[in-house]
Amino acid sequence: MRKKTGRYGEQLSKKYLIDQGYFILDSNYRTKLGEVDLIVQRNDIVVFVEVKTRNTMTFGLPREAVHYKKQTTLIRLAEQYIQYKKIKNMGFRFDVIEVQWNNNKGQYEVNHIENAF
């Protein structure tokens, strides 16, 4: 169930980002270090996006799951991606997108946190 919820949150996040004028460069970019959910670009900025989806607040806000260790991993993955793709003359940042899903009402809310860390 968690994977299904997470995939749905990533789909909603992609749609949201495209609607905001971002271009999707990569989804679920994975190396031996870990995974970046979305890598997007708008103008001259490449954004590494961690998507956290929750359907309950039992474990706190979705953004709270992007702790120091996860941030460190994302930074290392971004460095690898930039070198591998030979990206130059671009800015970079790390965003978090929270998707809060209410199963009872069939509604969701997307909260895009730019420059999250």
Rank of each mutant, 00 (worst) to 15 (best):
Phe94Val: 04
Arg30Glu: 15
Val110Ala: 00
Leu17His: 08
Ile24Pro: 01
Ile82Glu: 08
Glu109Gly: 00
Phe48Thr: 11
Arg54Ala: 15
Arg76Glu: 15
Lys4Gln: 12
Phe59Trp: 13
Thr56Trp: 11
Gly34Trp: 11
Lys3Gln: 14
Ala78Val: 02
Glu50Met: 09
Glu109Trp: 00
Leu25Asp: 05
Leu38Trp: 09
Met1Ser: 13
Val110Leu: 15
Gly6Met: 04
Asp37Asn: 14
Leu74Gln: 08
Thr58Ile: 07
Gln20Pro: 00
Gly106Arg: 06
Glu109Leu: 07
Tyr68Met: 13
Thr31Lys: 07
Ser13Ile: 05
Lys14Arg: 13
Gln80Leu: 07
Glu79Trp: 06
Glu79Gln: 11
Gly9Cys: 10
Ile24Thr: 01
Asn43Tyr: 15
Gly60Asp: 08
Ala116Ser: 12
Arg76Trp: 07
Arg42Phe: 06
Lys105Gln: 09
Val40Arg: 03
Thr73Trp: 01
Glu109His: 04
Tyr81Cys: 03
Val66Tyr: 13
Asp95Ala: 10
Ser13Met: 04
Leu74Trp: 03
Pro62Thr: 11
Val47Lys: 15
Gln11His: 09
Phe92Gly: 02
Leu77Asn: 03
Asn43Ser: 14
Leu74His: 12
Leu12Pro: 06
Val40Lys: 06
His112Gln: 02
Asn43His: 14
Trp101Tyr: 14
Arg63Pro: 00
Tyr81Gly: 01
Tyr108Ser: 02
Val66Pro: 01
Gln71Val: 13
Leu25Glu: 11
Val66Lys: 02
Gly106Glu: 03
Val40Ser: 03
Phe48His: 12
Leu33Thr: 05
Phe94Thr: 05
Asn111Val: 11
Thr5Ile: 14
Gln20Asp: 09
Tyr29Asp: 04
Ile113Thr: 00
Met57Arg: 06
Gln11Thr: 09
Asp37Ser: 09
Ala116Asp: 04
Lys15Ile: 10
Lys86Val: 04
Asn89Pro: 04
Tyr29Glu: 07
Phe94Asp: 07
Ile87Gln: 05
Lys70Tyr: 10
Ile45Val: 15
Asp19Asn: 13
Glu114Thr: 08
Thr56Leu: 08
Ala65Cys: 05
Lys3Cys: 03
Trp101Gly: 00
Tyr22Cys: 00
Val110Cys: 01
Lys4His: 08
Ser27Glu: 15
Thr72Pro: 00
His67Leu: 04
Gln20Lys: 15
Lys52Thr: 01
Glu109Gln: 08
Phe92Ile: 06
Gln80Gly: 03
Thr58Arg: 09
Ile45Trp: 14
Gln71Phe: 10
Ser13Cys: 07
Ile75Leu: 13
Ala65Tyr: 08
Glu50Phe: 06
Ala65Leu: 11
Gln100Asn: 08
Leu12Thr: 05
Leu61Asn: 10
Asp95Leu: 10
Ile82Leu: 06
Asp37Gly: 12
Val66Glu: 02
Pro62His: 11
Gly60Leu: 11
Val47Ile: 14
Leu17Trp: 10
Gln107Glu: 12
Asn55Thr: 10
Met1Pro: 07
Lys3Arg: 15
Gln80Tyr: 11
Met57Ala: 11
Phe94Asn: 06
Thr73Asn: 05
Glu64Asn: 03
Ala116Met: 02
Thr58Glu: 10
Val46Tyr: 14
Ile45Asn: 14
His112Val: 00
Ile18Tyr: 02
Ile97Asn: 05
Gln71Gly: 02
Glu114Tyr: 02
Glu10Asp: 01
Leu17Ile: 05
Val47Pro: 04
